[in-house]
Design a protein around this nucleic acid. Structure first.
Length: 203
DNA sequence: TGTGTGATAGTCT
DNA sequence: GACTATCACACAT
């Protein structure tokens, strides 16, 4: 609603790496009974399929990762390390595996609610990590497969005013296989990025 | 300011 | 039975 323009399905129906880079600076919106939460996407990682050993989809389709093979623009939410949820956006065309992991947000609206969900007063700690932001926004596996193009509950839209920023490219965090691929991107200098990582040369 | 480690459960081998 | 797209806290420096 308001003047927010929700991203359409054709935005997502492209190469995961392209989608990842373009998601930087976009707004993630979460509507809850207690209020609306908005965060700017400042850090992402791209995951693909059979050419990406770090991807859940590397070894083919399973009940867990079936969203990665479904329609572009859906939310892929998985449970990991026994206690954490992570939010991904399905990219690539229907049937082709690919997703973008949202690793960090800059809180813009609903900060009071995020503090309550995260049980901390430190704004920098609210959403500077993939499992932190899902907790701050109450994103759980109930939203796995949610269509982000609907413009309600959980969606992504363009910022009101586009601002310029530099993109830093690094290798991905927390993986063993496929660690050499430079598929992590973040907004240079943004204090909400989870960590600096090994910076790759920008091609 | 940085490194190490325990928590905790779903998924796949 | 091993591994995990993590976090938070302890401890050393």
């Amino acid at each position: 609603m308001n003047n927010l323009e929700v991203l359409k399905r054709n935005f997502y129906a492209r190469n995961s790496v392209e989608v990842a880079k373009e998601l930087l600076g976009k707004l993630l919106v979460r509507e809850l009974p207690e209020g609306r939460l908005i965060g700017k996407i400042v850090e992402v990682e791209a995951y693909r399929g059979s050419d990406d050993p770090a991807s859940h989809a590397y070894r083919g389709k399973t009940p867990r990762n079936e969203v990665m093979f479904s329609k572009p623009g859906l939310a892929y939410i998985y449970f990991t390390y026994g206690m954490h949820y992570c939010l991904n956006v399905k990219a690539e065309k229907e049937g082709i595996p690919g997703a973008v992991l949202i690793r960090a947000l800059e809180p813009l609206e609903g900060i009071k609610i995020m503090k309550k969900n995260r049980q901390t007063e430190k704004i920098k700690e609210l959403t500077n990590g993939p499992a932190k932001l899902t907790k701050a926004m109450k994103i759980t596996k109930e939203l796995n497969g949610w269509d982000l193009t609907q413009g309600k509950k959980l969606f992504i839209c363009k910022p009101v005013s586009e601002e310029k920023f530099e993109i830093v490219t690094t290798s991905r965090i927390g993986i063993s296989a496929g660690a050499e691929k430079p598929w992590r991107f973040y907004i240079k200098g943004n204090p909400f990025v989870s960590c600096k990582g090994l910076v790759r040369k920008t091609a």
